[in-house]
Design a protein around this nucleic acid. Structure first.
Length: 185
DNA sequence: CGATTTTGACCGGCGC
DNA sequence: GCGCCGGTCAAAATCG
């Protein structure tokens, strides 16, 4: 898989602080790796995801066509290709998941596909233009769809690195292989 | 008092 | 060309 900038540093990994206040019960049901080179071609509301098998070290699984989280304006020709996109679905009451970075909300939008508003966050660290998009699953309001865009070029404010582990799983998270059938209640 | 959130306006791309 | 839609901006409000 591609973690081009920082081999040690997962682009969007969860940095779990010790004694993390995350006591809520959410389970990561899907971890989706968005290959940007393929997403260039998206012109409709369908998008191709590469499923990253949870618990398996960074292997791209089969492509997965289902949701339409993302949209057309993800990559602008005039803008710098931030290159890295990760989306995953999390079962959680709260959509604000503390992944160790500081996020500043900069927008909220009601999207057509979903009855739920979508929130836009930016990494509040200067020079780091990683963005994050959070919305509730339209079919499962108990799930939260989170999409990261870009790679952090700095360390997390509360750094706890688990080197060479592609996916950080806080204690209490239940990872599931990326099959929809097993992810639902 | 600085940082963050809120919220409506604005902008650009795309389909018709 | 126009309208729709998603994404971003920015001023005001709020919070710590």
């Amino acid at each position: 898989m591609d973690f081009p900038e920082n081999p040690n540093l997962n682009p969007n990994c969860m940095h779990i602080a010790d004694g993390d206040p995350l006591s809520l019960d959410f389970e990561l049901s899907e971890y989706l790796m968005l290959d940007d080179s393929t997403s260039q071609s998206l012109a409709s509301s369908e998008k191709t995801y590469h499923v990253l098998d949870a618990g398996c070290s960074g292997s791209t699984g089969a492509t997965y066509r289902n949701k339409n989280i993302s949209c057309k304006t993800g990559v602008k020709k005039n803008k710098v290709d931030i290159g890295h996109r990760v989306a995953f679905r999390t079962k959680s009451q709260l959509e604000i998941m503390d992944d160790g970075f500081k996020w500043r909300k900069y927008g909220k939008k009601a999207v057509k596909n979903s009855p739920n508003p979508r929130n836009y966050y930016k990494c509040s660290s200067g020079g780091c233009n990683v963005k994050k998009r959070v919305e509730r699953d339209r079919e499962d309001p108990s799930y939260v769809l989170t999409a990261y865009e870009g790679v952090h070029n700095h360390e997390s404010p509360c750094v706890v690195y688990y080197n060479q582990t592609p996916l950080m799983v806080p204690t209490g998270w239940t990872l599931q292989a990326s099959s929809l059938s097993s992810s639902s209640s």
